[in-house]
C-alpha cells in the first residue's frame, strides 16, 4: 500500500480521521475475518479436543495416499499437496490483481481475477474428487469377529488399528469423529472457497463494467483479496490439523 510520509508526532487518535489510515470497509473486513478465524478456530479446536480424547487416531499418510489416475499406488499426501499448491497459486494471482488495481490497470485486474477464479474452481474440483474417493473407497475391517467392508463417512471409519486375525493383519473401525470432523471442516472451508469464488466472479463483472474505474479506486478488489487470502490462511491450519499431524 502506497503511503505518504507521516510526520513523527502525527496524532492518529485525535478524531476526524481513521486512526489506522484505512477506510471503514477494509477495517470491517479485517475484523470480520478475525471473527471468522474464531469460527474456524472453534471447529479445529473441537477436532483437537476429540482427538486428544481418543486412544487411537488414523494416520493421514494411509488415509490420504491416492491420486487421480494413479490406481493403487501409495502416494501419501501427494494429492493434497497439489490442492495446497493450487490454492496458494490462486492467492498469488489475487495479489497480482490487487496490485494491478493499485495501478488502475483494468486489463490486469481482469486477467488476474480470471486466473484466481479458475484456481478456486480447480481447488473445489480437487476437493470433490477427494471426498468422492473417501466416500466410495471400501476397505476391509474386522467388526464383531467378522470381516466387512467400510467406507469413510461421517458415521463410520475404516482407518482403525490393525489386529491379528486368522494369521493375517486386518484393520478395525477407527474413531467415528474422524470422518465427521474431516467432512465438516473441509466442507466448511470448501464453502468459504465457494463463496470466495462467487465474490470474485462478482468483482470480475464489476471490473468489466468499469464500476471501480469510475469510482477512482479498486478497493473492492482489495477487500475481496483479503477474503480470498483468508481462505488460503485457514487452509494452512486445516492442512496442518488433518493431513500433517
Amino acid at each position: 500500500m502506497a503511503q505518504t510520509a507521516v510526520p513523527q508526532e502525527y496524532k492518529w487518535w485525535s478524531g476526524g480521521k481513521s486512526p489506522f489510515n484505512v477506510s471503514y470497509g477494509k477495517l470491517m473486513m479485517w475484523y470480520f475475518l478475525m471473527s471468522d478465524a474464531f469460527t474456524f478456530g472453534a471447529f479445529l479446536i473441537s477436532y483437537g479436543t476429540i482427538r486428544f480424547s481418543q486412544e487411537y487416531w488414523p494416520n493421514p499418510n494411509h488415509v490420504f495416499n491416492a491420486f487421480p489416475g494413479a490406481g493403487h499406488a501409495d502416494l501419501p499426501l501427494a494429492f493434497v499437496s497439489l490442492m495446497t499448491f493450487i490454492l496458494i497459486i490462486s492467492s498469488v494471482t489475487m495479489v497480482l490483481a490487487v496490485h494491478a488495481g493499485h495501478n488502475m490497470d483494468k486489463k490486469g485486474v481482469q486477467k488476474y481475477m480470471l486466473w484466481t477464479i479458475l484456481g478456486g474452481i480447480a481447488f473445489l474440483s480437487c476437493q470433490a474428487w477427494e471426498w468422492t474417493h473417501l466416500l466410495t473407497g471400501y476397505h476391509e475391517v474386522l467388526i464383531d469377529g467378522k470381516l466387512t467392508t467400510l467406507n469413510t463417512t461421517v458415521s463410520h471409519n475404516p482407518w482403525g488399528a490393525h489386529v491379528e486375525y486368522n494369521g493375517q493383519h486386518v484393520g478395525t473401525p477407527g474413531p467415528v469423529a474422524f470422518g465427521g470432523y474431516f467432512f465438516g471442516i473441509t466442507g466448511f472451508h470448501g464453502f468459504h472457497v465457494f463463496s470466495g469464488v462467487v465474490i470474485n466472479i462478482i468483482m470480475y463483472i464489476m471490473t468489466t463494467k468499469d464500476v471501480f474505474h469510475n469510482r477512482g479506486h479498486y478497493e473492492m478488489i482489495e477487500k475481496a483479496g483479503l477474503y480470498w487470502h483468508f481462505v488460503d490462511l485457514v487452509w494452512v491450519f486445516v492442512f496442518l490439523c488433518f493431513y500433517l499431524i
Binding site: 492518529w12 490462511l233 494452512v236 496442518l240 500433517l244 499431524i245
Partner: peptide, 26 residues
C-alpha cells in the same frame, strides 16, 4: 511442522494481505 505452518500463516498475512504495511496500531 507446526512452526513451519505458523511461518507460512505469518507470511500470508503480512505479505499477501499486506498487514505488514499497515499502521502499527491496526
Amino acid at each position: 511442522i507446526c512452526i513451519l505452518s505458523l511461518a507460512k500463516a505469518f507470511y500470508i498475512v503480512s505479505i499477501f494481505m499486506h498487514l505488514g504495511d499497515e499502521v502499527r496500531n491496526l
